[in-house]
């Protein structure tokens, strides 16, 4: 199965599935045609998924606004809770000082530019704990240094703190860059 995110405003998977009635209004309102509908199981209806590697979510929030049953809750984009992006700073060219490259593609395209991705020391793109996991940075990254983990797949330990990352021990530059955190479930 292809890796996918849920559209913005989703809480737990169980909660989502009990409400989603497959009306497809989220697909209809999406300006970016980034929502696909595929069945979850034999009895399951088609539910909306964002295959962010093919077409990421730009957080216009129209789907969560229109969802009649609040399977996607009507929240501001800061509380989308789709997942979290993790940058592999071994790969990211901005971290390799010998390259003398300032790519910044992820920073420039981030729908929450300046909040979810900031420029540490003025030039190193860093994913902060404000990241909601829309998948845009992963989609635009020219060297695939970013991967987005959906909220429903986060390991239990990650629900309160940092995401365990393979790159944690690799560098001493900008520690916050290597650990995204789950957005607070603020819209309770």
């Amino acid at each position: 199965m292809r890796e996918f995110l849920r559209p913005p405003g989703v809480l737990s998977e169980k909660d989502f599935k009990s409400r989603c009635i497959s009306c497809g209004q989220c697909v209809g309102v999406c300006n970016y045609a980034c929502i696909a509908m595929t069945p979850d199981s034999l009895f399951g209806l088609d539910t909306p998924k964002v295959f962010h590697r093919e077409s990421p979510c730009f957080l216009c929030m129209k789907c969560s606004e229109i969802c009649p049953t609040d399977a996607l809750r009507d929240v501001p984009m800061e509380q989308s809770g789709m997942g979290v992006a993790v940058m592999d700073i071994k790969k990211c060219v901005d971290y390799q000082e010998e390259n003398m490259i300032m790519c910044w593609t992820c920073y420039e395209r981030c729908p929450m530019k300046g909040a979810a991705i900031t420029l540490e020391s003025g030039y190193i793109p860093t994913i902060t704990d404000k990241c909601v996991g829309c998948g845009v940075c992963e989609y635009v990254c020219p060297i695939h240094a970013i991967s987005t983990t959906p909220t429903r797949k986060l390991p239990p330990a990650a629900k309160t703190g940092a995401i365990p990352s393979k790159t944690t021990d690799s560098t001493n530059v900008a520690p916050s860059a290597i650990s995204g955190t789950v957005p607070e479930e603020g819209a309770k």
């Binding site: 497959s22 009306c23 497809g24 209004q25 300006n31 129209k62 049953t69």
Partner: peptide, 10 residues
């Protein structure tokens, strides 16, 4: 996109 949905919800 003024009209959206199907016959489950519209």
């Amino acid at each position: 996109r003024a009209l959206t949905g199907n016959m489950v919800a519209f």
